[in-house]
Each structure stands twice: as structure tokens, then as C-alpha cells.
Amino acid sequence: MNRKYLALALAGACVSVSAVSAQAQERSAVRPDFAVVDREAVRVIVYRPRVTVGEQSTGGLFEPRADWNDQARQFLDAALVNSQQALGHSVIAPPEISGEQGRLLNQYQALFNSVADSVINYQFFVGNRLETKKRDNRNSQFDWSLGPGVRNLPGAEGADYALFLTTTDHYGSTGRKVLQVFAALGGVGVQSGVHAGYAGLVDLKTGDILWINADKQMGGDVRTPDGAARRMSQLLEDFPLASPAAAAN
């Protein structure tokens, strides 16, 4: 009796694991009316990416790791620099931001995260798609915006677009991964690791999201140079301002 149910439980666990890789989910989209006339003339302001890296202990407690965080920031920065060279557009660093300007940017980053979460939950996640978004999607619609107030963002006057970047990585410890398998046997859902990455290109005149790439389970180990490069290339995958040469690579 016990064995029979154990076998069933194992089968269930296998099914649910394979479901993760099998599930069809979109990860990026471009606004259909987005077209760039002169790639070389476009100015993109890149706001400070939010990078958080740590370990998820068996208990699920997030454990910050300074070495990983430092490495990830360094590697992702380098990867971003390499990408911008390859992509060939003009990148502008934001000015020093403090006080009211800092709080305004904070509001917009919070709004971007809410929009990115909504895009994932209700447009990319096909099984959970909002009915209105389904209709829109039949016409290849992708219509999400932060609103025209983005013109007031610090540094916006000298740029055409803003790029928002966020990565959050909680690596599962060995204990956590083993726990995950056993938990499945007991009918308890345990998530191992969080690897969320959001990238969005925003039109600084309209606030429209011209392009977004958002995934709660991204690849690339940001603690290594190669992994960070892979993460950055995944974040910037299908980046619409890519030069034809870079895109061909």
C-alpha cells in the first residue's frame, strides 16, 4: 500500500517537474508600431540596474552574499558595456540623483516592476491571460505604458529612451534542492531558487513600453563572467535597437 502511493507520488513529482520546462510562456514583446529610423542617433539613458544576489537556504531564508553580489554587479556591468558596443546605440549615464528626483525615479521603478509583473502574469502567461489581452493578442497587440510623465525623469530631457534593468537571484543551496524533491513526495510545493530578470525600453515622450523582456526564471549564473554575459544577452535578447551586425551574432 505504502509503496503504491509512493510510486504515485514520485510519478506526480516527475510530472510537475517536467511541466516546468514544457509550459509555453512568452518572455518578450515589442510594441507593434515601434520603428527606429536612425539607430546611431538614438540616445538611451540607462538607470542604475537593481542587482540582488544571494543564496536561498534550506529554510527559504534569503542569505545575501556580498562576493556574489559584487561579482554579479561587476560582471553584469561589463556585460552591459559589451552589449552597448555591440548594439551600437548611444548610451547616456543618468545624472547624480537625490531628494525629490530620487523619489520620483523610485516611483517609476516601482511602477515598472508592477507593469512587468502584470505583463508576465496576464499576457505572457498564456494560461492565465486576461481575456482583453487575448483579443488584443490576436491582433499582435502589445500595449503597456508608464504614461507621458516619464518626461520628468532625471536626465530625460537629453535622451529618447530609458532602459530599466532589474535582476534578482536567490540560488538554491544543495539542501534546498534535496528538500524540494522530498517535499514533492509529501505533497508540499517548494520553490528552489529565484532568477527574475526584467528589462524594459521606455519611450521618454509617451511612456510607452516599446520593448520588454521579463521572466521570473532566467538563465545565466550571474556570479560568473560567462553567466553574467549570458544573463545580459538574455535580458537584451531581441533588443529592438540592436544593430543588424549584432543581431546576426
Partner: peptide, 22 residues
């Protein structure tokens, strides 16, 4: 706390398993 919560998570799963297996 990290060490403690690791153990607590194991205990929760082991406990759930034990209950479900009778």
C-alpha cells in the same frame, strides 16, 4: 537563524511525510 530555519524546513517536510505515510 539560518541554521535553525534549515532544520525547521527539514522537520516540516519530514513531519508531513511521516503523517502522510501513516
Amino acid at each position: 537563524r539560518r541554521a535553525g530555519s534549515d532544520l525547521a524546513a527539514w522537520a516540516a517536510v519530514v513531519g508531513a511525510l511521516a503523517i502522510s505515510l501513516g
